[in-house]
Design a protein around this nucleic acid. Structure first.
Length: 476
RNA sequence: CGAGGCGUAGCGCAGCUGGUAGCGCGUCGCGUUCGGGACGCGAAGGUCGUGGGUUCAAAUCCCGUCGCCUCGACCA
């Protein structure tokens, strides 16, 4: 027990001090380190490997939807931002600007992209000349910079990695339809790959992307009950197309304006994984994106044949496509158990003389910490099943956690009580901005998303007839 | 950007009524161990965040500055 306490000291208590737990975990598991400039982070190999897995899956799915990858410049002329009034207003406070190049002051300052609607809009205006050029669907994986006041690794940093998909269409229906299907793609990815259940839907006008007609969001509930906006898909109507002259000749030779949209998810998803599945022992990574899916810990490694058998097993699992590591270091088994649990590896195999003799391996799953004996024969099959079971278990657990914390309220006090207890609160809303502002002022909860298909009688704020139901929550 | 806290060895900390830096963990070497953070012996590692001031003397006192954490105002 004394040893158990020694372990617990390494990371803060997840329920006692969640922010500190988060910081401890990301640093101690070597996902990330702080960069020298405020708000910057170094994504270390263990963290970057998660990102690569996310990229790989999403990239394939985007391509299935006709999206092609491209790359646009980091620097954007400041004048581009001015072309879309709401956009410039929304982003101006957090844009970093380059004013000197080659030792000389630039004639026109250059923005370091906070997002690329403007430069891509500009390029699309060149590329879209005929209705035959549509739809145009491009995506880029890149970094963006937003000069944030308060930062936290993965959740909010000055520079972060993301993908941004940008598309242009002939009709509003196609553009809005694609906006929604990309949202659906995201939702499917979140639930089936990251095991994170999300609420999807439209954002209020106050919360929507600067320059969009409609912003659709995925909101995920974190361990502490706060919401994390995990990805967005924006429908722009003709706002950007008009600002950037994305015009083309239609079937009858007439000049038409395109309809555009964009969608993105960022390295924030890594934060979402950490804060959704993590527990008092540290990370819990969903098998689909875990850099290491299975770790083999040899027991009594110096006894004859143990290491050799572990290596054999490793090769067998690798051949079956499992990402596996053999921990042959000199640390004690107990030390390794704790270490790999903190790092969130979904399945651990303990293999010692006893197991080898009995033709078995002791397998521990990270989500429940349950240990089961599996036959060494056809080991890969057993491990694959176990990984699938962990993946499924994580989604169920996260969904249960969330569903138990969605409540309804009929007044501001009810919303306040809910969010103070880490709940998502569904409440009626009249549709007036003043009420939305007041809820935020009184409860520090924001309107995360419209709860589609639900109805409440009265606005929780003013008591007038409710036009919508809103999911309120405190957010990261 | 407002309020609070913290910067001393890789990490966690002590030292803070001024006198030239210490503990635990980790690291390195050798040996014994191995089924939930093992142990012995030996060793390395610090211009005390940084700039200035006070003083014979500053980790310690004073001022500035940078960074980190928490809570608020703004946002993927």
């Amino acid at each position: 027990m004394a040893k158990e306490n020694q372990f617990v000291e390494q990371i803060a208590d997840i329920d006692g001090d969640f922010p500190q737990w988060y910081t401890d975990v990301v640093l101690k598991t070597k996902l990330v380190d702080y960069g020298p400039v405020k708000g910057t982070m170094v994504i270390r190999p263990y963290g970057y490997a998660i990102w690569e897995n996310i990229q790989q899956i999403l990239n394939a799915r985007f391509k299935e939807n006709g999206v092609e990858n491209a790359y646009f410049p980091l620097l954007i002329p400041m004048s581009y931002f001015a072309k879309e009034a709401e956009h410039v207003e929304g982003f101006a406070p957090e844009v970093a600007i380059v004013t000197i190049g080659g030792g000389e002051e630039l004639a026109e300052p250059l923005a370091i992209r906070p997002t690329s609607e403007t430069i891509i809009g500009n390029m699309m205006s060149k590329w879209v000349q005929s209705y035959r050029d549509l739809p145009l669907k491009v995506n880029q994986w890149c970094n963006v910079m937003r000069w944030e006041k308060t930062t936290r690794p993965f959740l909010r940093t000055s520079e972060f990695l993301w993908h941004e998909g940008h598309s242009a269409f002939v009709t509003a229906e196609e553009a809005e339809g694609f906006t929604l299907s990309m949202l659906e793609l995201y939702k499917n990815f979140m639930e089936n790959c990251l095991a994170i259940p999300v609420l999807t839907g439209r954002k209020t006008e106050k919360e929507r992307f600067a320059g969009a007609v409609a912003t659709y969001t995925m909101e995920a509930m974190m361990h502490d009950g706060k919401s994390l906006q995990s990805g967005t898909s924006h429908y722009f109507g003709q706002n950007f197309a008009k600002a950037f002259n994305i015009e083309y000749q239609g079937t009858e030779g007439n000049l038409q304006t395109a309809y555009t949209m964009s969608f993105g998810v960022s390295t924030r998803l890594i934060g979402a994984i950490i804060m959704t599945h993590g527990d008092e022992r540290g990370l819990v990574l969903p098998p689909v994106v875990a850099p290491i899916q299975c770790v083999i810990v040899p027991i009594a490694a110096r006894k004859g044949g143990v290491i050799e058998r572990c290596e054999e097993l490793k090769a067998e699992l690798e051949a079956a496509g499992i990402r596996v590591t053999l921990d042959a270091t000199d640390n004690s088994p107990g030390w390794k158990f704790n270490e790999w649990e903190m790092k969130g590896v979904p399945v651990r195999i303990e293999l010692g003389p006893r197991d080898i003799e009995g033709g078995k391996m002791l397998c521990a799953r990270r989500d429940t910490l349950e240990k089961t004996e599996l036959p060494l024969e056809n080991a890969a099959e057993g491990i694959k099943e176990l990984l699938a079971s962990v993946q499924k278990g994580l989604l169920e657990k996260a969904r249960k956690h969330r569903d138990e914390r969605i409540v309804y309220a009929d007044d501001i006090d009810g919303i306040l009580a809910g969010v103070e207890n880490g709940k998502f609160v569904k409440a009626g809303w009249c549709g007036e901005r003043a009420c939305e502002d007041l809820v935020k002022e009184k409860t520090s909860a924001t309107a995360r998303v419209y709860a589609e298909g639900e109805s409440r009688e009265f606005c929780a704020c003013c008591g007038k007839k409710a036009a919508h139901v809103i999911v309120y929550a405190r957010a990261y």
